[in-house]
Design a protein around this nucleic acid. Structure first.
Lengths: 255, 255
DNA sequence: TCCTATAGTTTGTCCGACAATCGCCATCGG
DNA sequence: CCGATGGCGATTGTCGGACAAACTATAGGA
């Protein structure tokens, strides 16, 4: 007959982890608000009663998680995790898992359509102004693939923002980050790619302005199908996302 | 007249960051494969020519990013970032950004419908077996809200897995993690909730088996609308996700 | 052959130290 | 009076060394 358990398993975690968890708890349950300063390392040493090296390891964990940052003077304060930084983690994971462009395409079709539906329904005047501004800049750089690809990425971020749905905004970001580099390649390789891209954006803005959901969905589909056709001219949809993409993700993360 | 800038800002990163970046680069571009051992700390000290404390701070960064792990003997090796761990980062971010249940609901409607569509199209026999097994367990615990909520969460993970689309799988995870705790509350508060939930799962499995896309979408919608109706009995959709959710996310992350 | 005791490694933590940098403040010159 | 300059304390990034606990591996004993 087995003995009735007298003791619960004790929580044995390294000290630096406990430090990180303790600070994280205070932030997520709101006792420390975004922007609030965390103490200096020396002060944390006093509060937690552990060595500064231990404190610093804990700080690295939180910093990487995006919960705390160092301002210009390197002092610590809590902050809201940035979507793009977290999303680049996911992009990196997707690359490592060797997802295919087909998966990327299918998921983006869903996510971008959902974004435009939300945008059509809830975009504000300010959202429209941002989109128009982006369109103007796109038209100015239609001959420069790198700049145009950047504008395209920003455009779709703005559409997602206009949907007023931050969950959607976040969900689409990882796939979008992986799309970005291919857009440049496609616009470079396909002559009519640039103008078609800008035209699609113009129709999308128009659809949002007129609250025309059908048109929004239609042009989003076309826009993505354009991407697909362009992509298939240079590679197979079933190829896995290349490792070179990580450069973009890394650059985005450092921002 | 402003001077033409003679110099670019120089990239001065702390040593621990450079260590982390260097190791990350080797992993993401494939020179170090998942599972490969990273050296011991002492060895990294030799290779990078910096102090062990510096190496350790770099390691914490990579560990938190999910790129490296310590096995049972605490030795370092590269690994594929786990979806659930990364997703819990995102869940945490969503909580801190105080997203509303309405955003969660709308995004999930899109993501879960996309998942079922993929599952209907591409589910394997093995996927179906897993789903059936989950259903059997759900039926056994229909009276236990906590266990049933857990089964429900797993069910939808399995559906997403059956879609064979890892981008989608990853995209839906953060929102799903935030849903999970409410399911328990709803099943506790609404008597017919448990049986309805299990019935929906049964219909979903049947739809996947028959490759009946319409039925799959229909029952997914109903399933989510059930959640919504149940939720609105206890709170408003426009309430922001509560801080208490973090307990679940934290527990999931530690796994 | 299987088990155990011992030695060597590795990690987690601590201590103390120092240079570089930043914020602050007083001083100096126009 | 105002802006530039320089000193001073505080803070961070890095370093070297140290030690206990936990683990691996190896050799010796039943």
């Amino acid at each position: 007959m087995p003995l009735a358990p007298l003791f619960r398993p004790i929580d044995v975690a390294p000290a630096y982890q406990k430090v990180a968890d303790a600070i994280e708890r205070e932030i997520v349950n709101g006792r420390i608000k975004p922007g609030d300063p965390i103490g200096t390392e020396h002060e944390l040493v006093r509060q937690f009663g552990v060595n500064r090296s231990t404190i610093r390891e804990g700080i690295r964990v939180l910093e990487e998680g995006g919960l705390i940052r160092r301002d210009s003077s390197r002092r610590l304060h809590a902050c809201l995790p940035r979507y793009t930084k977290l999303a680049s983690r996911l992009s990196r994971a997707l690359v490592l898992h060797e997802v295919t462009f087909r998966e990327l395409y299918e998921a983006s079709m869903t996510l971008e359509v959902a974004s435009i539906e939300g945008a059509v329904e809830r975009a504000t005047e300010e959202n429209l102004a941002e989109l128009s501004d982006n369109l103007a800049r796109s038209e100015a750089v239609v001959g420069d693939p790198a700049m145009l690809a950047e504008c395209d990425a920003e455009f779709h971020v703005l559409v997602a923002k206009a949907s007023q749905n931050r969950v959607l905004q976040l969900a689409r970001e990882p796939a979008a980050q992986l799309f970005y580099p291919t857009t440049e390649m496609i616009v470079t390789g396909v002559v009519e790619g640039g103008p078609r891209l800008v035209a699609a954006h113009r129709h999308l803005i128009e659809a949002i302005r007129r609250r025309d959901r059908e048109a929004g969905v239609l042009w989003t589909r076309r826009h993505l199908q354009d991407w697909r056709r362009g992509f298939e001219k240079i590679a197979s949809l079933d190829r896995s996302v290349e490792h070179m993409y990580m450069e973009h993700a890394q650059a985005a993360r450092r921002r």
